[in-house]
């Protein structure tokens, strides 16, 4: 299971890459492995204002439907259109080409301590099995 060191994580298995006021969001390697073959991704549109933990989209594997929640508050600045056409990228490059949205999160710094660091996330996943 890959857990990149430069990301923050949620217990819902989203990752967040915080670069200044821009936050890139996706789902983790652990999540894609649990889901199996991802065949459909639906994302909120650019411009949508999201609160922390608000639903930002849905990921469907052959068998299951899972909601994806925003790890931080912010406004969707960009949606990964390539991912909508190629949902299988989530299984191949969950931290790379399968990023979902970029948020502009001017005021979310206060929410950051609520996210898990890589060690804590890895421990959380191991306990979940």
């Amino acid at each position: 299971m890959q857990v990149p060191r430069d990301l923050k994580y949620t217990k819902d298995h989203e990752w967040a890459r915080v670069e200044g006021t821009t936050v890139t969001v996706g789902i983790t390697d652990y999540a894609q492995d649990k889901l199996g073959d991802v065949v459909f991704v639906e994302l909120a549109e650019a411009g949508t204002q999201l609160k922390q933990h608000e639903r930002l989209g849905t990921v469907e594997s052959v068998k299951s439907v899972s909601d994806v929640f925003s790890p931080l508050s912010g406004k969707i600045a960009e949606v990964n259109k390539d991912l909508l056409d190629h949902p299988e990228l989530i299984n191949k490059e969950p931290y790379g080409r399968a990023w979902m949205v970029k948020l502009s999160s001017g005021n979310s710094a206060g929410e950051l301590p609520g996210l898990l660091d890589p060690d804590a996330y890895e421990k959380y996943c191991k306990e979940a099995g």
Binding site: G36, V39, V62
Partner: peptide, 9 residues
């Protein structure tokens, strides 16, 4: 067993 290599494969 739900799957081994993946449902699509």
């Amino acid at each position: 067993p739900l799957q081994y290599t993946g449902i699509i494969d």
